[in-house]
Design a protein around this nucleic acid. Sequence first.
DNA 1: TAACCTATGTTTACCGGTTACCATAAAGAT
DNA 2: ATCTTTATGGTAACCGGTAAACATAGGTTA
Lengths: 329, 329
Amino acid sequence: MVEKKTIKLDDVAELAGVSKTTVSRVLNNRGYLSDKTIKKVHDAMDKLNYRPNVIARQLFKQKTNLVALVFPTVDNPFFAELEAELEKRFDQLGYRVLMGNSQNNPAKEQDYLKLLLNHQVDGLIVGSHNQGISEYQKTTRPIVSIERFVGKQIPVVSSDNYQGGLLAVQRLLNDGCKHIIHTNYPINLVSPNELRQQAYEDLMNRHHRKPITYSVSFDVSDEEKERVFRKMFREHPEVDGIFADNDTNASLIIRVGKEFNRHVPDDLKVVGYDGANITRTLSPELTTIQQPIPEMATKAVELLLQLIDGKTDVKSVTLPVKMINSTTA
Amino acid sequence: MVEKKTIKLDDVAELAGVSKTTVSRVLNNRGYLSDKTIKKVHDAMDKLNYRPNVIARQLFKQKTNLVALVFPTVDNPFFAELEAELEKRFDQLGYRVLMGNSQNNPAKEQDYLKLLLNHQVDGLIVGSHNQGISEYQKTTRPIVSIERFVGKQIPVVSSDNYQGGLLAVQRLLNDGCKHIIHTNYPINLVSPNELRQQAYEDLMNRHHRKPITYSVSFDVSDEEKERVFRKMFREHPEVDGIFADNDTNASLIIRVGKEFNRHVPDDLKVVGYDGANITRTLSPELTTIQQPIPEMATKAVELLLQLIDGKTDVKSVTLPVKMINSTTA
DNA sequence: TAACCTATGTTTACCGGTTACCATAAAGAT
DNA sequence: ATCTTTATGGTAACCGGTAAACATAGGTTA
């Protein structure tokens, strides 16, 4: 077998007939350089197919140009679009992106944080739904959170969940729904998500209706979720409107509704939440509250860069949501 | 502001009252160590909240435990599920995963490869749809491709596209369709995908029907794709069956069909392709050919590890597909 | 008692760039 | 003719672990 040794900076210097220092100068565009030398060096690099070892540079510079994304899973329309948007922006800024799917498992999230921090990432964007992860308190590394309170000093980018809740429930009320049920994550999760439920309850109370919320965990199977929704239809046959906490659940509810002979929008109206691209392509009929995913990505990246630049007065932001009117409500 | 210096191995050694070597031995579980010493070292690490600098280790060991995924975009049901499955497996094996969304742009794919290789990734899994990327020829780094021919020596994991094509078209024929149209990527892409079209054409010819294929680029907007499908319905009003190259297109076709007053399954039957989880949750009514995404991920990881381990006789594999019967055909 | 195993320390080279510092020399400006 | 700017080289320290090589010493075993 051919012994293929790695081409290093010294090899380039030798072939180009210049010093190691000069090659480094060319690579980093530093100091005085003649066009002739630059060309010589580039030619040598091409000939040898030289690839600078980023690791060595990272070690010296104490900067990796790596960021990590920690979310429950990328296999979900909202997170997929968000991570794609984040990656696109980071790429443009010269950062590579590490993926961390925490599966909504606190132990896994903790492990991921530890591992990713060990990899000397320059920053993290987290949107996992666990709490009590001590790792966040231990590190001073830049972190921005999306739609979730993580710690006192960690800025949060969220959409206007209270407004989203109001829009959804108001829509159902306007459509004449008398018995509106809300589905949400287990509420022990400290998340701006909670505000959706708050809006639902406030609006229901204002209309002298009893708020009823069904909890559905994020990380269980579709079958498990459907079981909860069947229970919901059995326990509340009077239900005529549902404000679902996400579009996937809205879709499942519509399907389970059919089993109970309830058809949207005639005898059941459903409003979802998120309004991701994939969802709108695959379920165009769904009325939903759309989170401004691209804008959230932009803002999160912006805040993280501020932290990386050493800014200390980085503030959380809330972005407006939009109602997408379709035929399920 | 508090000057917070990075804790390094020497600091741990000093606090624990042992030598640098001993700490390194504890970290790497190497050589002889007494329980007492191990505890001392761990205590010191905890007290200092020491995080070994992975970069330094990577530099010395010439191993990063990083792999990169290069796919068009993660914001797509198939790739999202595939990348999630890949990440899960790599995580279990101690590898971190870098995300590279090439947007189906050859220049971007080339850039990504260069950048990710510079980051000294131990391997890559690619599933982008571009061709003529010279970078693949230049590197000797382990690469496994998914559903795409990249280069002579690069193993490919694909599902049985020919069989998938047969299943889909046979289903439409059995359902009594007389005028079946196929949609696919522009066929200049060298991809096992082509076999689906081959199966479609073979089966059509066998039944003395004229095969008609509409090309739809992957990376254009939904609106653009819908324009193509409208054109299709206008040019072929006789169409009564469609074999779409992916579920998203199937969904768009069904929607556009409604504009032309064609309703599935009564006056139009549609079979999609991919059968990803998200799609099946959001469009449960879609009849489709399901690719074995988890198995493909398992196989791709397995092959990549073989390459990383230096094996040379790593073979491409083809995995069976499955028909998901529902109501659109 | 010699031989061996266990448990640690010391020293040092190494991984592959980066960069500060100093030296040298030719071209251009004053 | 002197000063400055431009262009390059050489040397060495540094980033933070890793590990080979060798030394030392107490405990066990044949």
